[in-house]
Amino acid sequence: MKLDTAFMIDRIPDFIQAALLTTEIAAIVIAASLLLSSIYNVILYHRLPVLHTLVRVHVEIARNTPLLIQLFFLYFALPSLGIKLSNYDTAIIAMTFLGTGYLTEVIRSGIDAVPPGQEESGLAIGLSKAQLFRYIIFPQALRISTPALFANFIFLLKETTVVSAIAIPEILYTTTSYIALYYKTYEMLIMMAAIYLLLFLPLSFLLSWVERRYQHGTFGT
């Protein structure tokens, strides 16, 4: 097998463009999901009526339907109801919907894992439930859930490949488009794998470094 390296080199600018778009979508989605899932956990912790149920419904739908189906639903089914979103908006909304579902569960498990003694001590010194959550429970819960959170960040980054199905020119879309145009199947697949590794490996190392730093001085160790 002979690789057409000149062709691969010519395509590098397009792949960089695609990688930037992938990173951009992932960054927005991760930030939005983290924010939303934190709010969701405030709702869950305080057991706010109605909202509590809505959060559970969202989490269960997000976790139990495939992302591709969510995307197709938003992109191809909603226009018949008169709601027409652009493909970029659809991608962000669908992925945030999914990401929030997963991150909510991760943070909730972190909250559950905070030793009950912490809560009791907080109540004993007269903190309100809101103060308790804000100053005692939530910071510890975040620290406990960092490994799982980071694993889910990487998961979300990888899930961006799915949005190629609604014509977002990210890395997979770029790859399949060039295969379709020039039939350089091996070259483009190798290129795609290389770009994803270049994106994810450093990130993975960075996250484990942050994780190690953040785990210092955890209560009870």
Binding site: T176, S177, I179, A180, Y183, T185
Partner: peptide
């Protein structure tokens, strides 16, 4: 459409 040629190539 886009996978026709790769299917034959492989």
């Amino acid at each position: 459409p886009a996978s026709r040629v790769p299917y034959l190539q492989s």
